[in-house]
Amino acid sequence: MKIAVLQFPGTNCEFETLVAVKAVGMEGEIFRWNRSAGELSGFDGFVIPGGFSYQDRLRAGVIASKEPVMSALKEEAGIGKPIIGICNGFQILVETGLLPGSIEKSSGNVDMALAQNVMVSQGKIVRRGYYCDWVNLRHEAPSKRCSGSFAIERGALLKIPIAHGEGNLVTTTPGLMKKLNDEGQVVFRYCDRNGRIINEFPFNVNGSTESIAAICNEPGNVLGMMPHPERAFFAWQLPAFDPRKQRPDEPGPGRRVFESMKRYIEVNA
């Protein structure tokens, strides 16, 4: 079971992502952008890690989305291999049209955007732009719905950090939000520590529509998420006030995303 962790110029989370991939028992390697795209077919799954690919020129993710490796990745997605895009990886998947996966099938349109964070509290904008903190996520999809949350039960709470300037999911495509909800494509939402969805800052940390933190495509093999599961892989990485931090050998909440990917590949092999 071999995972390619994609690397574009400006990617900056590939090393800790590879650590996470390997720590759950998968093989993996970093796949540099100028390698022959054809080699991608030799892998069983893909992670597009976070960072600032191509310096976020024009807008986050758009230049990487035009690379040959992304065309090759579309084909791999088409045959059901799992792809997880984290943070900038999510932005790239949106720019390629792999997420949410078009309403008009095979049109390849970009149907949504991850816009600049706008933090709103009590009707007022209290902050904009880049933000780094630990957030609580509620798993919205049923288990087995999506590759990256395959082994996570619906309603499970995960504490995972975010760090981004553009994670505010917006769309003007008619019917898209309804479809995402109806088809179980909303994978994670931001919530409070008890799992309540409160659609304002600091719980909805970036202003995202319906507090959405992660979505998958219709078949469920492609997942995009703004939070960084690879940074919550060990319990010792948790913030000071989390009681699990005192049990440093325990797995962290983010580990479940990588375990899910592994399980998904095992089941679909």
Binding site: G129, P161, A163
Partner: peptide, 26 residues
């Protein structure tokens, strides 16, 4: 201020700005 800083990249943070008198990484 420190919410602008990515304190989590690399996944090494044990104690972050604001949590104690010093930051700590592993």
């Amino acid at each position: 201020v420190y919410r602008y800083y990515d304190t989590e990249v690399m996944g090494n943070a044990v104690i972050r700005p604001g949590e104690a008198d010093a930051g700590l990484i592993a």
